[in-house]
Design a protein around this nucleic acid. Structure first.
Lengths: 291, 291
DNA sequence: TTCTGTTATACTCGTATTGAACATAATCAG
DNA sequence: CTGATTATGTTCAATACGAGTATAACAGAA
């Protein structure tokens, strides 16, 4: 058997959290390149009875973290994207999205990093990101000039003056930038930025129709903290009053009666997630609307 | 190297079409069990540069079908669900959803079958399916009795009197029935019904926010034909006038001026899909509402 | 104490979207 | 010509949504 016909299966996890209004991803640094990487481990075909159990296992080992919410994202297997493809056999990576409540202190080579450091064109909270407006868009337009298909793809992925970019099309934007040779921001080992992009896009979408934000929140929280978490992930600012009305009419949260004084102004009530919404209205999420 | 530590990667496709108001899945029959199976092929690590290309390749070979819309679904790798797991090494299946326009005549062991023959509890078009109401629900209630977690899962997956079941939670329902030993309907080889369930659930969801139904329609079609296709997939009846208004305000279709006389009553206008909606409003689908 | 900044929370209002009718128009079979 | 059948047009109330205004409760400075 030629070594290049061997298939190995790797499991990757984009483990996300939100702290201090910043979406963060857990990275490790055991690659010879020195670049941050997503936690990564091989599937042990003898030990791991399911893919997810395998993932949970070595995430525990590598990062001392117990995963809560876990969801399969995508399976990557392009041989032309994989630098090991012709050296050491084919690698298939099954990527997962995991959400954790709080960022425990990093240890050793494990650390939390701002997601937008890797994908700087995705954060619209302070308006259109400078990199995007000044550098990327002009180049992208040049790249698409005279090519009808590219023009259409560009408009769908990045929007136009009338249609703001769809927050969920993170992967499409990344792939397009990659194709055009324009990817900016901090690098990641292998093709891990692509996985991160997939994770962010999926999470942005999921928030809207399933109450997953609460997986990222502490047990009790103020409504502003919750709003900031959604904003951090969605990459856009939300309208405060309408956001609260949404939570109210959707019966997502219930007040605890306690108040939290450290917000700077009037004390805020602390709320907790009402788990019952899952039963009451199974297909609902924080379908936020901008500004 | 022990043979049981070898990993093989298989590619599966749930190829769906809608004909005569019935959602159909393409099945093959080359399994020794004689049971219908989804088209299945191994990944050739040397030949197939991407997973999707590999898939398209042997689907062409096995079924003489050229796939249009293809989307990755899920990667399955449970060793306890895989009868070959301890015999012949581990098998990981990467499953895809594919949509095709029309059902070409079956050849040899390839045939189109009603999706609901395999998942009979999923079709609510004529009200609550008899199997579900008479047989499955009582058994499921028994299965959940006294177990709070099971009760909650049951309500989320199958709904209750007030909350109708969420059409998209096909996989959750299948898994629950499997766990309770209650799976009914026609069998499929290996764990292929699980893949089919995943495909149906994904498609039901996707229809609502991306204009994918049109991948299943002929070039021109009447609005009722389109509605029947959505109903067939969603497994529920829709409100005719509202459905049409939705298409109208969403500018999904444009009239061709021609009419189609064979509908039994007043002739219907033929419409075609307006590809421009993709550019105009990138995140939109036929967000149907029931009855 | 009073003023100012800051955040929380309550209420309003016009518009768009939705669920659900009612009403009319073409065809066909008898 | 009648009734059955499907297509298509219109209306209406209820609700959701986007955006704004007003008031409340705290901290710290003047």
């Amino acid at each position: 058997m030629k070594s290049s016909s061997v298939i190995r299966v790797g499991l990757n996890a984009a483990i996300l959290a939100v702290t201090e209004e910043t979406p963060r991803v857990l990275t490790v640094q055991h690659d010879p390149s020195g670049l941050p990487a997503l936690p990564f481990g091989p599937l042990d075909p003898l030990q791991d009875r399911t893919l997810e159990l395998g993932l949970r296992g070595w995430v525990r080992g590598q990062t001392a973290l117990e995963l809560g919410y876990v969801e399969q994202l995508y399976t990557f297997g392009d041989s032309n994207r994989d630098p090991y493809a012709n050296v050491d056999g084919r690698v298939i990576s099954v990527a997962y999205l995991a959400l954790v409540r709080e960022a425990p202190p990093a240890r050793g080579s494990v650390s939390w990093r701002d997601v937008y450091a890797f994908l700087p064109w995705e954060d619209f909270r302070e308006g259109v990101p400078a990199v995007l407006e000044k550098e990327l868009m002009p180049e992208l337009k040049r790249w698409a000039r005279g090519d009808k298909t590219r023009k259409e793809r560009l408009q769908i992925a990045f929007g136009s003056v009338q249609t703001r970019p769809d927050p969920e099309r993170v992967l499409e934007r990344y792939e397009m930038l990659w194709e055009a040779g324009l990817v900016q921001g901090r690098e990641m080992a292998l093709d891990h930025r692509r996985i991160l992009g997939t994770a962010l896009g999926r999470l942005r979408g999921k928030i809207r129709y399933r109450p997953v934000v609460f997986e990222l929140m502490p047990d009790t929280f103020t409504l502003l903290l919750l709003q900031r978490a959604v904003e951090a992930l969605a990459g856009v600012r939300l309208h405060k009053q309408n956001f609260r009305r949404l939570l109210d009419t959707g019966r997502f949260v219930e007040g605890t009666g306690e108040t939290f004084m450290e917000t700077g102004g009037r004390p805020a009530e602390l709320f907790r997630f009402r788990r019952d919404v899952l039963r009451e209205r199974p297909r609902t999420g924080v379908a936020y609307s901008r500004t």
